[in-house]
């Protein structure tokens, strides 16, 4: 019942916003600022620092879009959204793009009328164990006690995983993340399982995060990515290809350090030339300046740099690239060609 009302409100809001937001690009240019929806604070993904500056993995996407459209990565108005308000905010036109670790699902894409422009983080359910146990794979968890948030899909994923691997476990159902943390730290369970990025963020809050490891196995699919309103394909293209530019930049070896240098004159690689606007004019095709990608890459670096800086292995979050490695390194991060 609640859900219907919610969906209904979304539809109405979406219809009302549809007309107004026909030209999001023009709106953004006229406003001189990009309105970007982020979370209310998730370490590593989007959180304000001590000075109130927003930073993080999702925030970097916002900055890249602002840089490619407006030429200034600082021209972003961050709008904190909760899990409930995020879709209303986007549908009503309050924000131009939502970059808030949101899972790409059928019903959100089709029923809620949004366009997911890509995936910037392939998440999935993972396991965290104390390092002292000496476990390196989830398949070694035979007989382990697993803390799990009850009533979520993680519970089903977990049962399926252990069943299909034919190993036993003891589930300890827990209501909230905080209780799970307490039981896990006290050793009442060997393993804590939830979304891998959530595990990493939880681990970062521990007194000694180094004593705990997130196992490499991921047992469910949670593709997270930025999304825009359905129906404004021009704007969708801009956000999609800005994200792709960041990904392609990593693949092509363009970093925030060398991008200005490489863009100063055409090099030997035609794809780099096309991307950086030294050959042809891809930017003009969707109404941006030729150096749109240069600005985007210069804003926060390429995809690999953004990852390493915010959630990579050298940060407190400490996520390994895993699925989020370039396709050339066996990951899923892949940009269609720039031509």
């Amino acid at each position: 019942m609640k859900k219907t009302v919610f969906l209904g409100a979304l539809t109405v809001a979406g219809l009302a916003a549809g007309a107004a937001a026909a030209g999001t690009l023009d709106d953004v240019k006229a406003r001189g600022k990009l309105n970007c929806g982020v979370s209310t604070g998730l370490a590593g993904f989007s959180a304000p620092d001590a000075n109130g500056e927003w930073g993080g993995f999702d925030v970097a996407v916002c900055r890249a879009v602002a840089a490619s459209v407006l030429g200034d990565p600082k021209a972003v108005e961050f709008v904190p959204t909760t899990g409930k308000t995020r879709f209303t905010a986007l549908a009503s036109g309050e924000i131009d793009v939502l970059a808030r670790n949101t899972t790409w699902t059928f019903s959100r894409d089709v029923d809620l009328k949004f366009t997911f422009v890509g995936v910037n983080y392939y998440d999935g359910q993972g396991f965290m164990v104390p390092k002292a146990l000496g476990v390196s794979s989830a398949k070694e968890l035979d007989g382990a006690t697993v803390c799990i948030q009850t009533g979520t899909t993680t519970e089903l994923n977990l049962a399926d995983f252990f069943r299909s691997n034919n190993i036993s476990y003891e589930p300890v159902p827990i209501e909230t993340n905080a209780e799970a943390q307490q039981q896990y730290l006290a050793g009442a369970c060997d393993v804590y399982t939830t979304d891998a990025s959530g595990l990493a963020a939880t681990r970062a809050t521990f007194e000694n995060p180094g004593d705990h490891v997130v196992l490499p196995e991921i047992i469910s699919k949670e593709p997270l990515g930025p999304l825009v309103r359905h129906g404004d394909d021009e704007w969708g293209d801009i956000v999609r290809w800005t994200l792709n530019a960041l990904v392609a930049a990593e693949e092509l070896g363009i970093t925030s350090a060398n991008v200005k240098d490489m863009a100063s004159k055409a090099g030997n690689n035609p794809e780099i030339n096309r991307l950086l606007g030294t050959e042809g004019n891809l930017g003009a095709m969707f109404g941006l300046s030729p150096d749109w990608a240069v600005n985007a890459i210069a804003a926060a670096g390429n995809y690999g740099e953004i990852f390493a800086k915010n959630i990579g292995e050298d940060t407190p979050i400490g996520l390994s690239r895993g699925l989020n490695a370039q396709w050339t390194n066996g990951g899923l991060i892949y940009s269609p060609p720039f031509r």
């Binding site: 519970e155 977990l158 049962a159 399926d160 069943r163 003891e170």
Partner: peptide, 13 residues
């Protein structure tokens, strides 16, 4: 589809 830790009779997911 889910497991229960304390079972007085046989049960699996």
């Amino acid at each position: 589809g889910y497991d229960i830790n304390q079972r007085l009779i046989d049960y699996d997911s």
